[in-house]
Nucleic acid binder design. Structure first.
Lengths: 134, 134
DNA sequence: TCAATTGCGTAATGCTATAACGTGTGTCAT
DNA sequence: ATGACACACGTTATAGCATTACGCAATTGA
């Protein structure tokens, strides 16, 4: 999918996430954007929904929070990846690292195939501590 | 860990989950157990917390719901597994299949090690459709 | 032009989870 | 025995996350 033009609300939400050090909850985003006219949770959730469709934002299920996709740091989009995304979530500093591995994807695909299961969305989240947080 | 003796509340919650066809939310469990004296969410959450510690119950992060561990169906506990647990969650019938794979575990361990990350808890949930639900 | 689609704003509501009390019970070292 | 502690429990209130329902405005395209 080619990156679509974002609406004002979508841009605001994406910027908030992109500039954050850690995942943000929808309500935290709402608070950050009150000065920009945001008044209700739905404004945030609607923007998040679209941004997730576009692959620009990920939802972290184990945190009920959201992060900007790492591909945003890759301005040439040379690394933009559409397979399974994995997250390492540090309980210490809150930082989230996104990573990918085709080997994992293949192995997982094989496992679900054996069960005759049709995958639609895969969630892989590792909670723990990063190098700096012991 | 040897399976500890469960309290009354813990047994009730575990039974509710074990007899369910699909994952249950904490509030659904509460409703099912009102006739047994349950009145407040905390009674459910406290039991769930312990049951998760004991490895008898899993939380599904992408559903905000809970399932009895598959090891309960294995009365000799010969298959009781303490590594990474993966779940295939059918959007059609709601059924959840628990599965394990040491190859995945090893590969994942390798990947996080490369990032100098210390894993504490791993969540792997596959959303999709099972064989019966197309 | 009319219909369909999409995004937006607002209010209300529902679902999920925890905080902060206090009570009772059992263990166990003193 | 008694005091200290740990633990399970019960209740109320509150916090945090997400959606339903309504209506309006702008855009698109048959």
């Amino acid at each position: 999918m080619v990156t679509p033009i974002l609406t004002k609300n979508q841009s605001l939400v994406l910027d908030a996430l992109a500039h954050a050090e850690a995942p943000l909850s929808a309500y935290t985003i709402l608070d950050k954007l009150r000065d920009h006219g945001f008044r209700a949770p739905l404004q945030v959730y609607r923007a998040l929904e679209k941004l997730q469709e576009f692959g620009l934002v990920h939802r972290l299920e184990s945190l009920n929070a959201f992060v900007a996709c790492a591909c945003r740091e890759d301005h040439d989009h040379t690394h933009h990846h559409h397979g399974v995304t994995m997250f390492a979530i540090c309980e210490g500093c809150g930082q989230v690292t996104e990573f990918h591995d085709t080997g994992m994807e293949e192995r997982l695909a094989l496992l679900v195939k054996k069960q005759h299961f049709k995958t639609e969305k895969t969630t892989i989240e590792i909670r723990g501590h990063c190098q700096n947080c012991v």
